[in-house]
Structure formats: structure tokens, C-alpha cells
């Protein structure tokens, strides 16, 4: 089963819907912070990331320095380096340097999640499909949020806040059902993240996720090492 462009688009629909609701909120937030509609959309089209953009608007609103902006983005988005490294092990042989340079723009939490859940090697076309539809959802949501502000009633926008997390659960739970070691990883990561969230409230969300994920994945790598092609020994 080859991963073609069309499959990428289809797999990207839930991402685009989730992004639409989140970026709608970002659009509202950016305009409230004093940005124009064009500036808000420009940020979404060039960054394609939620937490980093929200923090970036905070730096702009506070008239922070460019250095502060760079460090903030580095800390919050460094998880994408880990994701890029993980995805680099799963690429089809047709992934040359131009394809890598283009696709790396679209490594987000959700695209990474869907791509790494595929059983076969990743093709550039599949990744372009996935990224394109997510990009449209993200930019379109920002545009509408920035222009229309609060046209949607609050109960709907509130309920839309859970969409992306629902998608994450749909990825990790079936995997945990199949593999005891994945279940172990999920429990350790969730527990660590919850402890950090309440014990160290000043820790940024980005660091909270990085620390928890590294602890859980390292523990599993020691206890349940993976043999040559993905299968776990347990």
C-alpha cells in the first residue's frame, strides 16, 4: 500500500478540522493583542505551530527583544527536532534533499503523529498531502478568527478545543492495546507530565512535554528494547 498524495489529504482532514478551531482562537487572540489581520495570517502561514505562535504574540505584545523571541521559539519548538529525527528514520528512498527541506516546514505535533502511525515508509507526496490540507486549515482558521472575531457562540468554540486531543487519543490508545511496552510509555509520560504540571507550574508547556516524553521513552528503551525492524521484545 503506497502512501500517495490523496491519502495524505484524507488523513489530514481531522488535522485540518482541529487546526481550524485552534487557529480560529489564535486569530482572535492575535487581533486582541494589537496585530492586524494580515500580520496574524502571515504568522500562521510562516510558522504553522500553535504554542510557539501564541508565545510569539505574547513577546510582540510586550515589545520583547528579538533575542527573547528567538529563545522563546527555540525552547517551545525544540520538540520538533526530536520529531524530525524520529521521522528521518522512516522515509522512503525517494526523499531527496529538496523534498526534505520542503517537508520539514510542515513537521507539527499532529502531522508527526499521523505520519509516524503509518505502517509503511513515508513518501514525499503523502507528506505534501498531509501538510497542504493542514496548512489550509491552519491559515484559513486564523484568517476567519482574526476577521470575524466572536461570531461562533462560545459553547461551540469551547467544545472545539478538545478536537486535537481526541485525535491524539485515537492514535495512542489502539497502539497501547496492541503493545504492552507502548502502554508503559503512555502511562509514564502521562504521569510525569501531570506531576510536572502541578508541581512546577512555572515550567513552560514545551519543556513539560519534552521532559516527560524523554523520561518515558528512555525508560521504555531500557526496559523494552526494540529489535531490528520495529518489533518489541517484551
Amino acid at each position: 500500500m503506497r502512501l500517495c498524495f490523496r491519502r495524505g489529504l484524507i488523513h489530514g482532514i481531522p488535522i485540518a478540522l482541529g487546526y481550524f478551531s485552534v487557529s480560529f482562537g489564535f486569530g482572535i487572540m492575535a487581533v486582541r493583542a494589537g496585530l492586524t489581520v494580515i500580520e496574524a495570517v502571515c504568522i500562521s502561514m510562516t510558522n504553522l505551530t500553535s504554542a510557539g505562535q501564541a508565545a510569539g504574540v505574547g513577546v510582540i505584545a510586550a515589545c520583547g527583544t528579538y533575542i527573547e523571541m528567538a529563545v522563546t521559539q527555540l525552547v517551545i519548538n525544540i520538540r520538533y527536532s526530536l520529531m524530525g529525527l524520529s521521522l528521518s528514520q522512516k522515509l522512503d528512498s525517494s526523499f531527496n534533499t529538496p523534498h526534505r527541506l520542503a517537508v520539514s516546514f510542515g513537521i507539527t505535533d499532529e502531522i508527526f503523529a499521523v505520519a509516524s502511525a503509518q505502517p509503511s515508509k513515508l513518501t514525499p507526496r503523502y507528506m505534501y498531502g498531509l501538510i497542504l490540507i493542514a496548512f489550509i486549515g491552519w491559515s484559513g482558521g486564523t484568517l476567519l478568527g482574526a476577521v470575524a472575531g466572536n461570531i461562533l457562540p462560545a459553547p461551540i468554540t469551547d467544545a472545539m478545543g478538545i478536537v486535537l486531543y481526541g485525535m491524539f487519543l485515537a492514535i495512542i490508545i489502539p497502539a497501547a492495546k496492541k503493545s504492552r511496552s507502548v502502554l508503559f510509555v503512555i502511562i509514564i509520560a502521562a504521569a510525569t507530565s501531570t506531576i510536572l504540571y502541578y508541581a512546577l507550574p512555572s515550567l513552560s508547556g514545551g519543556f513539560q512535554v519534552i521532559i516527560s516524553a524523554v523520561v518515558a521513552a528512555a525508560a521504555a528503551a531500557v526496559i523494552f528494547p526494540v529489535s531490528e525492524e520495529g518489533g518489541e521484545k517484551s
Binding site: 520538540r79 526530536l82 520529531m83 524520529s86 505535533d109 508527526f112 503523529a113 509516524s116 502511525a117 491524539f168 492514535i171 495512542i172 497502539a175 497501547a176 511496552s181 507502548v182 510509555v185 503512555i186 502511562i187 509514564i188 509520560a189 502521562a190 510525569t192 507530565s193 513539560q208 512535554v209 516527560s212 516524553a213 524523554v214 518515558a216 521513552a217 521504555a220 528503551a221 526494540v226
Partner: peptide, 9 residues
């Protein structure tokens, strides 16, 4: 394991 760990966290 990192994808599952990141998503869970």
C-alpha cells in the same frame, strides 16, 4: 517510543 510519549504528555 518517542511519538507515543510526546502525544501522551
Amino acid at each position: 517510543y518517542i511519538p507515543y510519549a510526546v502525544l501522551s504528555a
